[in-house]
Each structure stands twice: as C-alpha cells, then as structure tokens.
C-alpha cells in the first residue's frame, strides 16, 4: 500500500497553486490528506502530480465579517473546534465536528478538503447545506462564488474545475434566539454517518420563525428538507406543545430519496432520517440561546 510515483509541488501562494493546476494535467490537490492519502496508498488514485496546499499562506483561519463567518479552506477541523467566533456564532459546527473522524485526523483534516472530497456521509457538507454557505473558488480567471446548493453536481463531484481551488467558505450568521441540533447515527464513534441530521431553529414570541433542516448520508448529496422547514414556521418549539410538528417533519424526512449499498438499505436510511430529524429538532429547541 505505497502510492504510485508522482511529482510533488508545494506552492506558497494560491495563485501559484492555480497556475500549477492549469499547467499540469492529472494533478490532485492535497489539503489535509485524510481522504486523499488513503486513496493514494491504496492506488485508487494515481495522479501524475500532487499539489500540496499546506505551505500556502492566507487560506486558513476564521474571520467574523459581521453577518457571516469567513472560513479559509485550509482551516483544520481542529481549529474550527477551538475557534471562539465559531463557538459563539455557529456552535453547531464544533458540535458536528465532534463526530468527524478522530482527534488525530481532525488535526490534519481541513474544511476545504472535506467540501471538495464531498463524501455523501460527511458532516461538513451537511452543515454547509444547512447554512446555504457560499464558497469562493479561485481559478485562472480570478475568483467566483458558488452557493452550496449548487456545489454538489453528483456523487462526490463538486462544481469545481481541474484548474480551480476552493479558497474560502462563508457561513451566514443566523442571529436572534436560535438553537441548533446535530445528531447522527454511525456504527462506531468517528465513523462516517449512515445518516446525519442538522437543524437550526429561530424562535421569537414563542413561535418558530425560521427553520433549516439538512440530512447527510442518505443520498449522494445533503438534502435540505424545505417542505418541513416551511411547515415548522409558526409552530411551538417545544416538542410536547407543538402538536406533532417535529413528528410531521420526521414523516417528511421518511419520504426522502435515499441510496442503498452493500451494508444499508434505502428504507433503513429513510427510517433513520425520520428518527434523527425529530431528534435534531428536539435538541435545537432545547438549546435556544436567546442571543446568538
């Protein structure tokens, strides 16, 4: 399990990286390496060139822009979990990252790597779907913005060209009296989710005024449960008092398209989606923060 030979590049600027990608055919971008390196070791991918982003300055770190949080693509998962801005303004991110791999892999793994690898069961894409995050991609002709809704084209295929680089992600700030819930089911701690569900609820005057629900792992890309989100507006946040609003959302979740594979049937994924959406909503209703 040794990688096939490749030519290694370690640019120090994003422009240099983009130029390398434009020059070399069959190049792979190495970010945190927690998905690419196993594939290299197993020779599932045998690129001629590897472009390592780890020596590039300026594409890692978290910045509060007021109405959103700007996260550099090379920000490591560990640093997202330790960041004060994220803890205050998007606490669902560290909560969900707790489920991502193990602390040793989070020490290397990056948000950009996860979003570009786009494993259907990964937690970060599920969160970015929840937030309608906006991605900034740099190419030979400059930067462009992509909404996360437009990002996944197909199974593990993001909307990015071979000569483009994801440089940052912008997560909008919800504000108000918002609660979050993230639950997932995997067989063991740190495994990819079989199904994961994230929920954000904003409550004003004792009623839900805004809701977002996303489901990861069920289909080839994260699913936003927009019908359920709409239906929740106006409901009481407390499961005991909302006349089955969360259960209704769960039933909508049960009806999603879901994949099947050698291990798990689509029916089981749908069943899990229903369970987990209800639990994520209940969790969100329980941790309304009143200020964030």
């Amino acid at each position: 399990m040794k990688p096939a030979p490749f030519t290694y590049h370690d640019p120090t600027t994003a422009d240099e990286a983009v130029a390398l990608l434009a020059t070399h055919e069959d190049a792979k971008i190495l970010a945190g390496g927690q998905s690419l390196m196993p594939m290299l070791n197993m020779r599932f991918v045998v690129p001629d060139h590897v472009v390592d982003l780890n020596r590039i300055d300026g594409i890692a770190g978290v910045r509060d822009t007021g109405d959103s949080i700007e996260i550099g693509a090379m920000t490591r998962q560990r640093d997202l979990m330790r960041d004060g801005v994220i803890a205050a303004k998007a606490p669902i991110i560290p909560a969900a990252l707790h489920w991502v791999g193990h602390f040793q892999t989070r020490n290397r793994g990056t948000i950009g790597g996860s979003l570009c690898h786009l494993d259907p069961a990964a937690e970060l894409p599920c969160l970015m779907a929840l937030y309608d995050a906006e991605l900034t991609v740099q190419g030979p002709d400059g930067a462009r913005k992509v909404s996360f809704a437009e990002w996944p084209l197909a199974y593990m295929l993001p909307s990015i060209g071979p000569d483009e680089l994801l440089t940052s992600v912008s997560v909008p700030h919800w504000g108000g009296n918002t609660g979050h819930g993230f639950v997932e089911f995997s067989r063991r701690h740190g495994d990819f989710a079989i199904v994961a569900a994230g929920a954000l609820l904003t409550v004003e005057g004792g009623k839900i005024t805004r809701a977002a629900i996303s489901i990861g792992g069920a289909d080839v890309r994260p699913i936003r449960l927009t019908d359920a989100e709409t239906a929740l507006v106006g409901a009481a946040p407390d499961a005991a008092e909302n006349k089955g609003a969360f259960k209704a959302a769960a039933e909508i979740a049960r009806g999603i398209e879901a994949m099947s594979d050698a291990y798990v049937s689509s029916a089981y994924r749908q069943r899990l989606a229903a369970t987990l959406v209800e639990r994520a909503l209940s969790a969100a209703a329980k941790n309304l923060n009143g200020s964030a």
């Binding site: 390496g33 927690q34 390196m37 196993p38 390592d52």
Partner: peptide, 13 residues
C-alpha cells in the same frame, strides 16, 4: 505537538 497519522502524511510535508 499534535497527534497525526504518519501514514496519511508524506515525509516531505
């Protein structure tokens, strides 16, 4: 100082 998988990192890194 941070624990990492040495099979998932290149020596050159």
């Amino acid at each position: 100082g941070e624990a990492v998988r040495s099979c998932l990192m290149l020596a050159v890194q």
